[in-house]
Design a binder for these strands. Sequence first.
DNA 1: ACATGCACCTGGGAGC
DNA 2: TGCTCCCAGGTGCATG
Length: 293
Amino acid sequence: VPELPEVEHIVRYLRPRVRGRAVEGVSAPGGRPPRALSHALVGRTITDVARRGKLVLLPLGDDRTLVVHLKLTGKLWVKEAGARPGPHDRLVLGLSGPRAARSALVLEDTRRLGWARVVDAPELAALAAAIGPEPLDPGFDLATLRARLAARGRRRLKPLLLDQAFVAGVGNIYADEVLFAARLHPLRLAGSLTPAEAAGLHATLVEVLARAVAARTDEVPDQERVAQGGRGAARRIAGLQVFQKDGLPCPRCRATIERTVVQGRGTYLCARCQPATGAPVRRRARRAAEARA
DNA sequence: ACATGCACCTGGGAGC
DNA sequence: TGCTCCCAGGTGCATG
């Protein structure tokens, strides 16, 4: 599941491989001919590869940009031109190059939830404006986070972290990892954090994501390592502390990590390290217990 | 303003 | 073995 660090890694993998290449053809193996995309892309040059939140941005030199969202199972590869299409290849962009080095940018997406489209500058601005601050930007300081927490004080921490309008790029895995590192229960209300807790959340948010990005800057693309041996989202990511570790001892206190469901999503936490303090939560739980009785 | 629940889609695992 | 059921997770939308 690509979250900010994985998307960043894909961007770094793609940039030297597609920058400066012209799109020579567009096809969709096993699908409808992508006529609109083809019309918008053929003949244009990919001038760079960038990221905004979980979006991959491929600017085309004029005011247009190819935007890709990988959702749950999307991957972007550069393959040799003419390589046999994989069973889940959804979109193939033939790229220019010396005859022997011609290549293709391939969107592979098992579950077909991802998308790719070409937008103009105003549309790109609208997409970007709907996404919150980049947590790894130097401008994302503690004051910024505290102001945003205060503005959404009645929301619970985990749904808030998953909300791309609150902060860019956090998904289910890193939301749990950040909350564990910050010793905060996922159901705590944003407005209930002490100044020290807010500072801890800021520090861990930056640290956990930065470490995950840094762990992937080596030459071997993560995607290729996954293809060689990994299976299951958690296995792709080294160094996870709690995500999908239910039943295992907490790496900090040895209590058993548990799995719950928050906002319909699997949520992993150490109840000893991340106590569910906060009066509103308890009141709500008691009301629920009374309603059941 | 916030939460909930479903829809989208498919493969993989559990259970029978 | 082979069937059904359920689940995963990002996001958008309808509903409470």
